[in-house]
Write a protein that binds this DNA or RNA. Structure first.
Lengths: 183, 183
DNA sequence: TATTTATCGTACCGTTCGGTACAAATACTT
DNA sequence: AAGTATTTGTACCGAACGGTACGATAAATA
């Protein structure tokens, strides 16, 4: 009846948008259909496991993006460049404060129990990669870990507050302050 | 048939727990009934407006708690005491990192549009009250505002990360670091 | 104790939920 | 061009959804 408009891979960012907008529970198949332009037939063809498989695919894509653009640079590039790159990539990914962190959002309610491993891994790897870079810049182990936690947590908090107060600039201000703090 | 076990006011904290656990969309009347022990008859007797009125009541109660235990002390008490009190009250309220911030959680998805004013007001008043106290402690206006933002955002971020990594101690560590930073 | 008022359990409403089945249509292979 | 495999719209399913109606019960008032 209809053509192949979207590949499975093309659907994933749109699914991400749907989950970001409505949350896991609130993202009904009707809303997902609307957002992606894919009917149930296509959705269940691509994701036989239903909503849960859709969300898993979205989380895996996010994970891959951060692995490539944030975690790996932090671990392998020159520390200063890795950290600067992290802040820039983060600013881009979260659309300068106009986009929330889906992983963080999933963590807050019972959705967490479905995806606990992916959620935990995402944040742990982020903190560890940043702490490693900070150590290589000369921070002692405990301070490096504490500072890394502080930075990742500030990014998450800024996303919450930016959206809560409808003030995306708050996120950008926070990134600027972090850049200063990480010198 | 049954006795008057719960007043309307007694139901509100349980409703808060239900919304914290399941989110606004995920908190179905069946789950709310289970959590509160109140049947639909009672719930709609107390909250004729349904789920939306229940959530409004929960947000109003949270707002009142913070007004009493955080915002007012920050605005009226001696600044140092107000700030110390804020950190202690915050640690208590969020159960040392075992409880999320419902206002922040509501802010992340489309639930926000239903309660935008309450959500915005809660955070704005928190930041302003804290910035005021910091000014009275001698910080210049722009730094006071920036620091206040940083603190509130760190609390929110710590709650997200503590739950995401299943590590409530992260929240306590963060509060300790904030106490140091606010000297 | 009689009467009113508030509380509550249950049956039920129409709608939407996530998910399945399957035929029609398209894309790919030969 | 024919045949195979994949993609996709639609009809449909039972269950659960939020919400209403209302009689039964308990508490408060008289």
């Amino acid at each position: 009846m209809a053509r192949t408009l979207l590949e499975r891979a093309d659907a994933i960012p749109l699914l991400g948008e749907a989950f970001r907008t409505w949350g896991f529970e609130g993202a009904s198949l009707a809303r997902i259909t609307e957002k992606t332009g894919l009917g149930k037939g296509s959705l269940y063809n691509f994701f036989p496991g239903g909503k849960e498989e859709m969300a898993e695919a979205v989380l895996a894509e996010i994970d891959g993006w951060f692995e490539t653009h944030v975690f790996t640079p932090l671990a392998t590039a020159e520390p200063k460049a890795g950290i600067t790159g992290m802040l820039a990539a983060t600013g881009d990914y979260f659309r300068s404060g106009n986009r929330i962190c889906l992983v963080g959002a999933f963590a807050l309610d019972e959705t967490r129990s479905r995806f606990a491993i992916a959620i935990n891994s995402y944040f742990s790897r982020w903190i560890n990669a940043l702490a490693g870079a900070l150590e290589r810049r000369g921070h002692a182990r405990p301070e490096a870990t504490a500072l890394a936690e502080d930075v990742v947590l500030a990014i998450q908090g800024a996303l919450v507050l930016a959206r809560a107060t409808d003030d995306p600039a708050l996120f950008q201000r926070t990134l600027a302050r972090l850049a200063q703090r990480l010198g």
